[in-house]
Design a binder for these strands. Sequence first.
DNA 1: CCTCGAGCTGTTGTATACAACTTGTATACA
DNA 2: TGTATACAAGTTGTATACAACAGCTCGAGG
Lengths: 236, 236
Amino acid sequence: MSAAFPGAGAESKADLVHRQLKEEIELGELAPGTPLSELWLVERTGASRTPVREALRRLAAEGLVDLVPRQGARVSRVSLQSVRDLFDFRSLLEPAAIRQATEAAATDAELRRVFTAMRSEFARTVRRAPSQARSRAFYELADRFDWAVIGATRNEHLRRTIAELRPHTARLRNLSHVDPRRVEVSVAEHLRMCDALLAGEADEAATAMAEHLTQSLATIFRNLARAPADGLDLLG
Amino acid sequence: MSAAFPGAGAESKADLVHRQLKEEIELGELAPGTPLSELWLVERTGASRTPVREALRRLAAEGLVDLVPRQGARVSRVSLQSVRDLFDFRSLLEPAAIRQATEAAATDAELRRVFTAMRSEFARTVRRAPSQARSRAFYELADRFDWAVIGATRNEHLRRTIAELRPHTARLRNLSHVDPRRVEVSVAEHLRMCDALLAGEADEAATAMAEHLTQSLATIFRNLARAPADGLDLLG
DNA sequence: CCTCGAGCTGTTGTATACAACTTGTATACA
DNA sequence: TGTATACAAGTTGTATACAACAGCTCGAGG
């Protein structure tokens, strides 16, 4: 019983290429602006042009690839303005999402269990000595937190839209350099969100999320001013 | 010089099929649930399977088509829950958008001119005697208003997301029956939005938009309860 | 009467050949 | 020297053939 529902067992080649490329773009292995010729991707992935094209089109719809007709695809560029836009938009969506998650948790014991466990993990993280490993562990945990919030979001459109923004955020993190001191503060922000969510205080949770995003953006900009990052266009 | 920027002059067959299908779905000519076999679309449009597939994939990304792997595409279904989700999401996005538009108009004379002209048109509409023609004219005008707001939205993500929701809203209007009395009220709501926007009162504009959306949803549900609409699943 | 399975039919997934276009280069000319 | 033009290489857009899979009918067996 490997397939839970029809068509779930098999991953099409288009899915495969899409997933691979998405991952590489997210990790920054394919830098912004990198040309993605269909033929090159055919050689690289072993698939034929048809699934490669489909993957590129899908990535373009997600904003990870810029597609110019009759000219080809490139990994989408990242400008200062696009970073601002991304975080402004997240500041609109994610407070609303955590508000819905808070309301959902009020009547869903399993959800409360998940967030309680996460709260413990965040608390453990903050007691560890600063290190590369701790930073990695924290961001992995923060990712799981974000996905949990997304999963608890009732509104289909809201859920899908936030999910689509995540690769952009992840890429930004992998393109810029991590500030170890940021981890301390960010853990505190996540603890605050967990507490509010578990206490059923939707407004407080939303506020905490908004401030968390504001702080994240500020940190990114501060670090960018200091260390003019690798794959970023600083035009905007 | 018909092409303002590279690749703008020619519309690919994929673009064509996409646009045609989108329009037919929006108008309700292709009812929710209608199967969209690739071969059938090939016969219908004259294009080959490759562009047809691309169009279907794009429509699926926009949520207008449901795509089941190895099984095919259908025009996406509309449930009561999906209508609620749509309007809840719009209530989150569009007040923010009109807020940005209001701020933009404060420093953009051309934008003010556009909205002033629209205000006049709305005022003219309200003085006409109720009729089918007036309803059509009003909705066409309301559409232009929405697009103007979208166009004045600074945030790229916000703009794209709202634009992507519009076909869903339009389809809903074309699937259900128009209530002539709603026009009266809706015109007033649009006048209020125009006034606030032109006066530079962003909060008032946002509030007006939020209430407008609330009223729209309420009307749709009221009419649906009375006249169980044609192409809608009433499961949710 | 019901269940199960083989085979058929029609569908989507994939590969590939061909057409149309864009860009860069080399050459001719003012 | 600068400019325009024709050619060539490489790219994407499109059509189509083939492969793999899902659903169905129909008959055999219990």
